[in-house]
Amino acid sequence: MSAAATAARADADGQLTVRVWRGAEHGGFQTFQVARRANQTILDVVTEIQREQDATLAYRYACRVGMCGSCAMVVNGRPRWTCRTRVARAEEGGQITLEPMRNMPVVKDLAVDMESFFEKWRDAKGFFEPGETPANDFAVVRPDSPERAQADAGVECINCGVCYSACDVVSWNPEYLGPAALNRAWTLVNDVRDRGQDARLDAVSGDAGCHSCHSHMSCTEFCPKALAPTYAIAGLKRVTARRVWKRGS
């Protein structure tokens, strides 16, 4: 797009000043000027910078419509999906500061390495365990059963990492499994078909597990899907404590 066309599309509010993190763990902010546009999202801004001002800017996105969970960044101090965040809602006095998500190693600029985040998903036994032998018949799960309701409350997570970036406990204790993995474990604890509950409850206990949560509720505050990992973690604390009370282990 030519400079004239870019200017023509800018609305009357003029320019945005965008500070973008450049580098990896060590680096600094680079400032860009981007034209304001109607209905502009933060992802639009990043894409415009990358395509028209600096092609070396690294960031990650895929679907652009809030389905894939790959475009999360820290926008003016708050972790959010950039594709679903309008500039008008996030800018402060025409200024936007973009940083990579916290609590994960920075690959380059705004792209982080999410491997540890996904490893913890696995470490928390965040996968369905069918047991040694397949079930003989379909499990009947009533939609209004308490277990199904608990699972429903957290099952829409798409692994974007926003909660993990927002979590203070992860920043203090890098081994902590984090809200997303624990939320997933809680949905499976409430899956009546699952045969791996003992191993899962062991996995979410210990110094990396649910009992380390301080209930700051940052995960619940920032989750773009309006899920409440804090309550999932509280559920895990309850179930694991009850297990100790009953069995002593």
Binding site: L201, S205, G206, D207, G209, H211, S212, K237, T240, A241, R243, V244, W245, S249
Partner: peptide
């Protein structure tokens, strides 16, 4: 913190 320590602390 293990579940046992958690329970001991809460009780």
């Amino acid at each position: 913190m293990s579940a046992r320590l958690y329970l001991a602390q809460r009780l």
